[in-house]
Design a binder for these strands. Structure first.
Lengths: 232, 232
DNA sequence: ATAGTTAACTAACGAACGTTAGTTTTTGGT
DNA sequence: ACCAAAAACTAACGTTCGTTAGTTAACTAT
């Protein structure tokens, strides 16, 4: 058994030019996840095979099972990471009275909307957003998360925000829930437009950049109607 | 070769209870298409096999190739049917001056919006809408059609409509394109919500019923701001 | 009755899929 | 230097997939 096959190890095959990244080479498990995020977000879960992912990483498909229980486990890890990442942020970090005083209602919406979106300004997270959008119809877990955390919860938050704006006398008395929907449904469509309809075709780099102009116009339109007083 | 296998023909197997629909039994080709619409709209194109479709119709998978060139051909036929069906309608059947005179701008929006949606109030078309929504990210042909015919074209039509409302003095002078987006982006989100997020879970029977209440609130909100005079 | 067409059938192909078993190499602590 | 653990490898399994070839039954027009 002297002249068996010679093995060629990872990243040592022809064409590999990976060298000296000495401080912290990414572990294989994370490489697998990143490759999966890339591929899933481009083609969708079903259309990507374990072999595709392995090829992207530069290993054999069986090696993946040293790190993940299977294909579904990779997907679960990605969505788990995504949910954890989003849970980090504290929505009410700064009391809105201060911001309202400083920026007025329109300015506040701009700032708050931008801050909300800045949280996802991150190439990896944008890919997962795209993946999430694609898999919404197929994956019950994702859909439930999206509907509660990405729709219902923000709607309630915005409803309270508008409620407060009324209490503080910034805007006219109005149906707060309706205002929340007016504002947020528009945002949600921009989300679908960017991640589902136009993904990869936008001239802008990120969701935030692509959307903010459009959103500012929307905010202004909404508030011209209900505003009472602006900031100093 | 006397005791060869006995063939059991379509719909004659155990459990079949199809009988006397004498006038016009649906042809196999259409049955295949309907079954495909059902299955594709539930699980998506990739997740449905030719065998699944054949089983739903009650024939062997190979028989499908007597009617369609292959799986992709079934999908193309469905989307072709869908596009043809939508092309039938003439958007400007009734001159809007008449309707505006009769209903005023808010009433006009209600009527026009409802009429626009009534066109798709049809179980078969609703399933295809769902299918289209699912396949948007995957199918370039569908996406191009959707973006041009279902987004850009209506946006232009609404822009002209608002332009005309201004010319006729029904609403204040404003950015017509922005008004079109304000109105139609909301509609589009309702579309995604119904066909993509909540499909099959709605308490309402159809898209129109499910959406119209919500939409009326939106129209009223928009117009309280820009309206000048209402109908008599 | 017969011939031609349509549309069902059986059977199988090659490819790709997710996954597993068993083996070999690499790596890191002692 | 050695050994155990980690992680790569080869090879294969059993399915399912879309599709095709060839066969047989059922209509339809003559």
């Amino acid at each position: 058994m002297g002249d068996k096959l010679t093995f060629v190890r990872k990243n040592e095959g022809a064409g590999s030019s990976m060298k000296n990244n000495p401080p912290a080479e990414k572990g294989t498990k994370e490489q697998i996840m990143d490759a999966a995020i890339d591929l899933f977000s481009q083609k969708g879960y079903d259309a990507v095979s374990i072999r595709d992912i392995a090829r992207a990483v530069g290993i054999r498909e069986s090696s993946i099972y040293n790190h993940y229980k299977g294909k579904e486990d990779i997907m679960d890890t990605i969505t788990g990471f995504f949910i954890d990442e989003l849970s980090k942020y504290d929505l009410n970090a700064i009391p809105m009275e201060v911001l309202l005083e400083k920026y007025g209602p329109v300015g506040f919406m701009d700032v708050a909307g931008r801050a909300y979106m800045e949280r996802i300004k991150n190439p990896r997270m944008e890919k997962i957003w795209r993946l999430i959008s694609i898999e919404l119809y197929r994956n019950e877990k994702i859909r439930a998360f999206f509907k509660s955390t990405m729709i219902e919860l923000p709607l309630q938050a915005w409803e309270q925000t508008f409620r407060k704006m009324m209490d503080l006398g910034y805007i006219r008395e109005y149906d707060a829930r309706l205002l929340a929907r007016e504002f947020f449904n528009y945002c949600l469509f921009l989300f679908f437009e960017y991640f589902f309809l136009n993904y990869g075709e936008s001239e802008y780099e990120t969701f935030v950049d692509s959307v903010m102009d459009n959103l500012s116009g929307h905010i202004r339109f909404m508030f011209e109607k209900v505003a009472i007083r602006e900031a100093a």
